[in-house]
Design a protein around this nucleic acid. Structure first.
Lengths: 212, 212
DNA sequence: ATTAAACGGTAATATTTTTTACCATTTATT
DNA sequence: AATAAATGGTAAAAAATATTACCGTTTAAT
């Protein structure tokens, strides 16, 4: 039996945190629609009333979980210095970090769930994208713009380049991961991919290159 | 009031078709979890009993809908001759068809729903992928292998090339489409993208090309 | 000390949804 | 013609679930 009663000062958010932890874990495991609030309450040793006090209901709880997820997934991609150095190496390093981030099981699942529920939570989907992928995209766009001015890259819309590089990194594998048809790649696998994808992106696959 | 009673010979599948049509439309509009069988029955002018007779329940109905969706989405991508002609033009033509196919609202939605429900229907997700994306991937892989032997492409794993090209075509936009943050592109837009993406894929974006 | 706030636990309520049952009707089968 | 099969419509039964209410407890606030 977990102690009940009004929480002590400084411990007001313990129930809230326990609740968010349990909710995230259960959602990741079973999906949004398959988890009942009763299950969540039991798992977090929290009363139903607390859920409604803190989040107003299932939708609010889902929103809070998603919001808490958005931040960590982006920060890891923006570690300072990742996009420094020679363009090729910088891109490959970024590619590794990005690939690692988006292939973690939790990240795959949370995006899958959000995609599935985006019709019911359009605002949440937008917030998620703006706080996560959007910021990564902006960063990468600036990187391309900067190195274009230095003459490294062909003159193309840097936003287009950034989108294409991210698309190349996601690749077809992400779909298989989202559908549960492929297992999580390890770090070595990711580094290999990152290098191959970066090379292909920079040099193309044509043997005879026409002059520009 | 729609006529009831045992269907005439040759009309046995009318109820079934009406049911699948309504189900698909309602799922696309509201998602799997938010549609009740009662709603479906009303919409299709079908009795609950017929649903259970034909499909055994909601899960079976979902499966039948997904299976019926898998085929059309792939056939359009494999029209004969799409991958013939000069490699660049062939790829660009394929790119247009592929992009058009995967950006149609229905295709985006059905994939989003399947991704969201893949935990509950792992077999269905696999069938969907094998009958749709997998076959497209195989076709494209053969294309790259063929043209590699003719000396057009760099010597790289043709499966890798095929995956990367599909990934480049999906791009970051697909995520925004799936999250409902972007509207469906029209044919002109798609053709522009197809050409740009193909060019970038073939030639890369580096200004100084190292010798191979 | 007393009161009020917030909690965990249980349970009751209300709503939704799945599933099953029944009836009249139409057609196939015999 | 009689029977069986399959249907649409309604509704009832059953299950699940979201939501609200209540109780005893612990702590903060006064």
């Amino acid at each position: 039996m977990i102690k009940c009663g009004r929480p002590r000062k400084g411990e007001e958010s313990q129930s809230r945190d326990r609740l968010l932890d349990s909710t995230l874990r259960l959602f990741l495991e079973h999906g949004y629609g398959s988890v009942s609030l009763e299950t969540v309450a039991k798992d977090a040793h929290v009363s139903m009333r607390t859920i409604y006090n803190q989040f107003g209901g299932k939708a609010g709880l889902f929103g809070a979980v998603i919001k808490r997820c958005s931040d960590p997934f982006v920060t890891v991609l923006l570690e300072d210095g990742t996009l420094e150095g020679q363009p090729e190496d910088a891109l490959a390093a970024f590619a590794s970090q990005f690939l690692y981030g988006i292939t973690r099981p939790d990240a795959v699942r949370i995006r899958a769930i959000l995609i599935g529920e985006s019709l019911k939570f359009p605002d949440l989907a937008m917030q998620f994208y703006e706080q996560g992928p959007q910021r990564t995209l902006d960063h990468l766009r600036q990187f391309f713009a900067r190195h274009q001015r230095l003459g490294y890259f062909a003159i193309m819309d840097p936003h287009f380049l950034a989108e294409q590089f991210l698309g190349a990194l996601r690749g077809e594998r992400i779909l298989r991961l989202q559908l549960g048809l492929e297992s999580t790649p390890d770090e070595a696998q990711i580094n290999t991919w990152a290098r191959q994808i970066t090379t292909l992106f920079l040099q193309g696959c044509l043997t005879v290159r026409r002059e520009k």
